[in-house]
Design a protein around this nucleic acid. Structure first.
Length: 465
RNA sequence: GGCCCCAUCGUCUAGCGGUUAGGAUCCCAGGUUUUCAUCCUGGUUACCGGAGUUCGAGUCUCCGUGGGGUCACCA
């Protein structure tokens, strides 16, 4: 059975790059009917934060990626790791190193001065003498000294790294706590991972982890190293580039399905298809199709996707989402007309909310340019006559089409062009020259409010004269 | 710097030895709409450079160049 995982360390919010690898892992598991596990890499007790953990879990919930079983916390498994450390020590596959931090730093500087690659020199690898006083040793694992470490990466192909590039790295700190590359290998093996999908910044950790797998006799999973996401300039994505925190996207008015669709297409594709529902992603995703090259983040495409998903979302659902953006219209009796009239002109929920606000609120002022253009000539008279026509209208007035009939009737009766009434009417209703159709707006706010807004506009026009 | 990885329109990508190099986004133009948006139609724009292999190379090989990653008692 396919088993994948996402394994963040709780040191900050969930980054969109992290979300993409999580998505790839999740899709791989779901596609194969396998399991997707969540593990928290919190072995460095000093760097963990409770808020970071909560932020990550919250982001996961928002986008709707579900995981199987319980969350695994590495900080709660120290006893387990200790057993493996002891085992390796006993088998002579690991050893105590009594070099102090100072000595290590000095060695590194020396090597750098000689323009060599800084690395541990293995001085305690076969040490059997009397250990120096007062030094708590670290535990190092014996990495192969010759040959090469080769593995097949599902994305990049065969990766071959000379053994002397991998030194005897530390598996337990002097305080006894285990380190990252050691516990990752153990947990991935023990949790039954079949496919490890992660960022390619981990590519160089893989040979180290393979050393651990081999020392402990574990079976290797398949590795996939996904290239990074860059900013629009092709450089590494940083906080300066705007939203990198997944939850930022919620605040900006993005739908989780838009973000997921956007991310799945960064480094993966299926022919010419751009729009993928979650079910389609699950059906079509295969990690072997992941691209080798890094991709750049592009906000325009995300906005386009978001507009698409907003347009196609049922109004009821949209209304529920809009509550978080300060718009409560769930009980509005013209909900359908209101959302049909607005959801095609908002790229984000934030924009949509302000469109709705614009219609529902009586304009306090008029856009000067629009007023100048629309409120000239006989505008106030035309508006007054139209309001009268509305008052006297004895037909049904519910749908936009009903209001349209009134407008048509008025235009015919008074022998004026459509624009003569439509333009001043729009500015009266919305305060601006652009926006939703006047038929829709009138149908949403009703006759009374329509007349109220017209009266206010007439008052404004007369006052300005 | 050592090692490793990568390279098609501005961006996301298709291509898997023979295509007028396709789609999407952005941008521009036209149409639809009383306006704006939507929608529809059309247009501009790309194989990093150089050798080689081959009848034929974006596709394979090598060398450059450019970009990225990594070299912790962080993860």
């Amino acid at each position: 059975m396919t088993v994948t995982r996402f394994a963040p360390s709780p040191t900050g919010y969930l980054h969109i790059g992290g979300l993409r690898t999580a998505l790839f892992s999740w899709l791989t598991a779901r596609h194969n009917g396998g399991k997707f596990l969540l593990r928290i890499e919190d072995t460095d007790l000093s760097r963990n934060s409770e808020e970071a953990l909560e932020a990550i879990m919250q982001a996961f919930e928002w986008v709707g990626l579900d995981y199987d079983g319980d969350v695994v916390y590495q900080s709660k498994r120290f006893d387990l790791y200790k057993e493996y450390i002891d085992q390796l020590l006993e088998e002579g596959k690991a050893y105590r190193c009594y070099m102090s931090r100072e000595e290590l730093d000095a060695l590194r500087e020396e090597q750098m001065a000689r323009k060599e690659r800084p690395r541990y020199d293995g001085r305690y690898r076969d040490f059997s003498g009397e250990p120096p006083e007062g030094i708590e040793p670290v535990i190092r694992i014996k990495a192969p000294t010759e040959g090469e470490i080769i593995f097949e990466d599902g994305v990049k192909g065969e990766i071959c790294i000379a053994a002397d590039e991998v030194d005897d790295f530390i598996i337990a700190r002097s305080d006894g706590t285990p380190t990252y590359n050691f516990v990752v290998a153990i947990d991935d093996a023990l949790m039954g991972l079949t496919d490890v999908i992660r960022g390619d910044d981990h590519l160089y950790n893989t040979p180290k982890q393979i050393v651990v797998y081999n020392a402990l006799g574990f079976k290797l999973p398949k590795f996939y190293h996904v290239a990074m996401i860059n900013n629009e300039q092709g450089k590494k994505l940083s906080k300066r580039d705007g939203a990198t925190d997944v939850m930022e996207y919620q605040k900006l008015g993005f739908l989780p399905e838009s973000l997921l669709n956007f991310l799945v297409r960064l480094g993966w594709s299926h022919g010419d298809q751009e729009i993928f529902s979650i079910d389609e992603m699950i059906a079509l995703f295969d990690p072997k199709d992941i691209n080798k090259s890094a991709s750049s983040y592009n906000l325009d495409k995300l906005l386009w996707l978001n507009a698409h998903y907003i347009k196609n979302m049922p109004n009821k659902e949209l209304a529920e989402k809009l509550v978080d953006y300060g718009v409560s219209i769930e009980g509005h009796d013209r909900l359908e007309i209101l959302l049909d009239a607005t959801k095609e002109r908002g790229k984000t929920l934030v924009e949509l909310a302000s469109q709705i606000e614009l219609i529902l609120t009586t304009p306090e002022s008029y856009d000067p340019k629009a007023a100048k253009k629309a409120f000239k000539g006989e505008a106030s008279e035309i508006l007054r006559n139209f309001a009268d026509t509305l008052r006297e209208w004895d037909g049904e007035l519910h749908l936009p089409a009903d209001y349209h009939a009134v407008l048509e009737h008025y235009v015919e009766k008074s022998e004026i062009g459509f624009g003569k009434i439509a333009q001043p009417l729009r500015v009266s209703l919305l305060g601006s020259m652009t926006g939703s159709g006047v038929d829709e707006v009138m149908a949403i706010i009703g006759v009374e409010e329509t007349i109220h807004r017209i009266d206010r506009a007439i008052f404004f026009i007369e006052k300005e004269k």
